Simulated scan of single mutants.
Amino acid sequence: MSLASVKADLAARAPDLTVLETEASSATVALAAAAHGVEPARIAKTLSLRLGERVVLLVARGDARLDNRKAKAAFGVKPRMLGAEEVEAITGHPVGGVCPFGLATPLPVYCDVSLKAFEDVIPAAGSPNSAVRVTPERLAALTAAEWIDVCQPPAAETDSDPAAAH
């Protein structure tokens, strides 16, 4: 159902984008990078965060880490990650397939500026073996995302270490 909601959303709003489905799982940054033949940094991971009473989605490059100090300054409260069941109940997507498209519940979306390092990025598409290739600017436009700087710059040594990507 989740993959179907993403396909329907993109067909209506961005028919030129193709949902890529793989035999291999792309449920983690490392698996997604391997499945799509790109470096882990180019995977656009979607984090589901609770900000007090609000839930938001943050899309960041695959090797980025949330910087608690920056996030608290930007959001006014320390963000907390949602549990898997709550993520699926709110977004309609299972963990490993969470993306800002085809959401069960409309949510504010933020894109970390770390995504701008790439010509295109690969976010999930509603299931643990689907994704879409899109420019960061288009991703932000399609999701009405606000650009924000809340991640730590990746350390040079983690760029080539898939285990460090998450």
Rank of each mutant, 00 (worst) to 15 (best):
G102P: 10
A145F: 06
P40L: 02
V95I: 14
I90L: 11
E85D: 14
P136R: 04
A41S: 15
T105I: 07
E86K: 12
D159I: 11
L3Q: 13
P153T: 10
A163K: 15
S114I: 02
C111Q: 08
V77K: 12
L49C: 00
E39I: 12
A24F: 05
V150Q: 07
S5D: 14
R138F: 08
T105Q: 11
A165D: 04
K70R: 11
A89V: 00
A104C: 06
S114H: 00
P108L: 09
S130K: 01
P136E: 03
A131R: 07
M1Q: 14
A141L: 09
C151Y: 09
V55C: 07
R61C: 14
M1I: 11
A34C: 00
P128D: 13
P100N: 03
G102Y: 01
V77R: 09
I148F: 02
T28K: 04
P108C: 05
T22K: 07
K116S: 15
T158A: 09
L3P: 01
A64V: 10
L20Y: 08
E119Q: 06
P15I: 01
L103N: 08
V109D: 02
G52L: 00
A30C: 04
G37S: 03
A144K: 15
H166T: 15
V77W: 09
L107N: 03
P94C: 00
F101Q: 06
A124K: 03
S160P: 01
A64D: 07
C99M: 02
I148E: 10
I122F: 06
S130G: 08
R50W: 04
R138G: 00
A74Y: 06
D9V: 02
E157D: 14
A73I: 05
V87F: 00
A156E: 15
L103Q: 10
V59H: 09
A41I: 10
L58I: 04
A24I: 04
F118K: 02
G37P: 00
D159T: 11
R69V: 14
S130H: 05
I43W: 08
R133D: 07
P154T: 14
V29I: 08
A131Y: 09
G52K: 12
A60S: 13
L57C: 04
G126I: 06
L142P: 07
S26N: 10
V95N: 04
G102A: 07
A104P: 00
K70F: 02
K78I: 01
K78W: 03
R69T: 15
A74P: 08
V59T: 12
A33T: 09
G96H: 08
A124T: 03
A164Q: 12
P136Q: 10
C99V: 00
D159L: 15
A71M: 11
T46S: 15
I43K: 04
E21L: 02
C99N: 11
A74H: 08
V121Q: 11
